[in-house]
Structure formats: structure tokens, C-alpha cells
Simulated assay, not measured.
Amino acid sequence: MTLSRGCILCHQGAKLVLFVTGRCHRTCWYCPLSSERKGTDTVYANDRPVDIPSQIIEEAENMSALGTGVTGGEPLLCLDKVTAYCRLLKEHFGPEHQIHLYTGKAPTDEELAAMQGLVDEIRLHPPQECWEKIAETDYIISAQHAKAMGFDIGIEVPALPGLEHLAAALPYLDFLNINELEWGDTNAYAMRERGYELADNLHNAIEGAKGWAEELCRHEKVHWCSSAFKDSVQLRERLKRIAENTARPFDEITEDGTIVYGVLEFGEDGDASAEILKRELEPGSFEVFSDRIELPWWILTESSTDVKGNKYVIERYPNGGMIVELTPV
């Protein structure tokens, strides 16, 4: 099995995820896109909303990104935005910054020409209803034209019944990726309606999805991407890269790429303790805000009886990301 260049970088957690639009011309029942993003034109670099293009570069630098995955919604509905962002990334990081793009469309020659030299790898997502006659669709014509124009070309789809029909597309592709079908908030009703259930209580994978892919996965061009891998490897490695670049001297980086630190809130009891801590701690080993002081978590736990006020330990995604756990001390 030969992984695409884009997949190799994803495995390393080295790909910026650039979400360019939540709009889409299709209504796939299994779409996992959150209600917050679906139908909107808000741009996200990883999980950060983007107001100005320079924030894309900033987020890519925060994780020492070696490439970018452009996704949506349907990115080709805002082709001008895609080409502008990809040009920005290529000019800043150099032509070796690998960019792949997901699309549910069969790109036209005009769309392909607009992306030449900016997008390296195109991942087509033909709808399930056309798999049985995939060789007769515009997706294969588009794949042939893309390959002739110098793109790496593949198909990427979720594991659904009928996957075996996509074998007919393999001669025209560099790769075919199958993602384990996942349960989400926005597709839960459709999953229940079809009688699908979770495979276990640890991940969002659907029972039986791997079996639908089994036959096709025997081919050397086909790669299976499990729900567990996305959670436990891909995301973790990306978080580690961000944490290594953005963690403060007193943040502890965990094996999962999250950061841990202590918080003491100001107030009647906390003010006096905060003043003592500021005098005792080394410069750079704490940060003061209007309502709190943040410092090494072990300082709070080791001197919990001496430090008065509301205090707790926070574990969160790096660079101001989502809070994973808040533990009172």
C-alpha cells in the first residue's frame, strides 16, 4: 500500500486543516459537518476562525505545518478564495508546501487550470448513488484530465455499502482513501433511520463499516483510515506540534499534545496569595490577567493549603484551544 503525500503528512500531524466554506451543492445524509459550520462562509484554520488571510499563515507557523488540506463544505464553490489562500501558503512556505483539496464536484478543465501550481493533490468525493457506474461518470473524465495536468488524483469516501464498485475507478487514480463511517450530531437521525449503531463507546465509528471496505482494501492503491487513528494519532500529533511552538515556559505538555497549567483567581482570598506568588516565582514562570494569575500547576497542588482563593488546574488544547478538563484544587 502506497500512501499519498498528503496522507503521509497527515500521519505526522503536519497538515494545516483549512476549512474555506460550509456551503455545499450536495446534501449527503452522512455528512458529519457541525451545525455551527454548515451553510456558513466562515473560514477556519484548524479550529480557529479566520478574519484576515495572515491568520492562516500564523496558524500554519504555530504548528510548523509542512502542508495544508483544503476542505469544506464544497471548496470549489469559492474557487477564488481557494486559489488566493493556496497562493499565499505557497509564496510564504515555498512550493514544497504540499496542498491537497477535497471536492464533491468533478472539477472542470477551467477549475483545474485555476488550481495548477497551487494545489498538488485532488481528492474526489463521488456520491454513493453513482458508485455502481463510476467509470461512466464525469469524475473519471475529470480524474484523467487532472492527472494529465500534473495533479496527484484520488478518491476519498466514507465506508458505505457498495464500495466494491469503486474498483473500476482504480486504473485512473493514484490512490483511493476510505474513511471509517462516523456518527455525528448532525447525522445522528439519518444513522438511526438506517439502523446503524456505534461499534463501541470509545469512538464514533459505525458498526460494520470496516466490513463494507474489506474487499476493496485488498488493492495496493487503497488506504483505510479508521476513526480511532484520526482521534488517537492524527489529531494528537497535530496538537503536539502546536504545543511545542506555543506553550509558555510554565505549561506542561502532555503525551496527547494538550497543555496543563494552574489558575488562581483574584478576589478577597486570592489577591494576597497572588501577590506572594508574584514575588516568589521567577519572571516568565507565570502570567497575570485582569481576573487571575496563571502559573505551573504543581505550585498550586503542592502549596494548596497555603495559597488561598479559588484555584484549579486546567488541561486544554494548546494556543488557547478547547478546555479538556478543569480540576478544582
Rank of each mutant, 00 (worst) to 15 (best):
K133V: 12
L118M: 11
E132H: 15
G73C: 10
R48I: 10
F266K: 10
L163V: 02
G321P: 03
W212M: 01
A113P: 02
Q116C: 11
P32D: 11
S232Y: 10
A209F: 01
M191N: 08
I259L: 08
T21C: 09
I323C: 06
T2E: 12
E294W: 01
K90W: 08
T103I: 05
R248K: 15
C7V: 07
F151T: 04
E36R: 14
G69C: 09
P126T: 03
E280H: 11
E132W: 10
G211S: 11
P49H: 07
L239M: 15
R194F: 06
D231C: 10
V307M: 05
L170C: 12
S290M: 10
G184S: 15
L295Q: 04
D306G: 12
V70C: 07
P328W: 05
D185Q: 14
V119C: 06
A247I: 03
L16G: 00
M115I: 06
K308L: 13
G270R: 05
D120W: 01
T21S: 13
A167F: 08
E74T: 08
R48H: 11
K147D: 08
A199R: 12
G150D: 08
V43M: 06
T327W: 03
L326E: 15
K278M: 15
D306I: 10
S64Q: 14
S227L: 01
A113L: 13
E59W: 02
V157N: 03
F266D: 01
C86Y: 01
L300S: 00
H145Y: 05
T2A: 13
G69P: 00
A199N: 08
A247S: 15
E287T: 12
G117S: 09
I293D: 00
F229C: 14
V17T: 14
P127R: 08
N319T: 01
K38Y: 06
K38F: 04
G150E: 10
T68H: 00
R279E: 14
Y196R: 07
L181D: 01
A159R: 00
E287L: 12
K105V: 01
E237K: 15
M63T: 03
T301Q: 13
T137H: 08
T71Q: 09
Q234H: 06
L76G: 01
L239P: 01
E193G: 06
P161M: 09
R194P: 03
I253P: 03
R192V: 08
K311M: 07
D306N: 13
E268I: 11
K221W: 04
L18T: 08
I242K: 09
K90F: 09
S4H: 03
K15D: 00
D152K: 14
G13I: 03
E302H: 12
C7K: 10
G211Y: 09
E197V: 12
A143N: 06
K38H: 11
C86H: 02
T258M: 03
K15V: 01
S303W: 12
Q144E: 14
G321L: 05
M115V: 05
N177Q: 06
C78P: 00
R26L: 14
D269H: 14
P95I: 09
S226I: 03
Y312V: 04
T83Q: 04
A168N: 07
K311F: 04
D174A: 11
I122F: 02
A228V: 11
V20W: 02
R5F: 07
A228N: 08
A169P: 05
G195A: 12
R26K: 14
I299R: 07
L89Y: 06
Q128V: 13
E164G: 05
N179L: 09
I8K: 13
R238V: 05
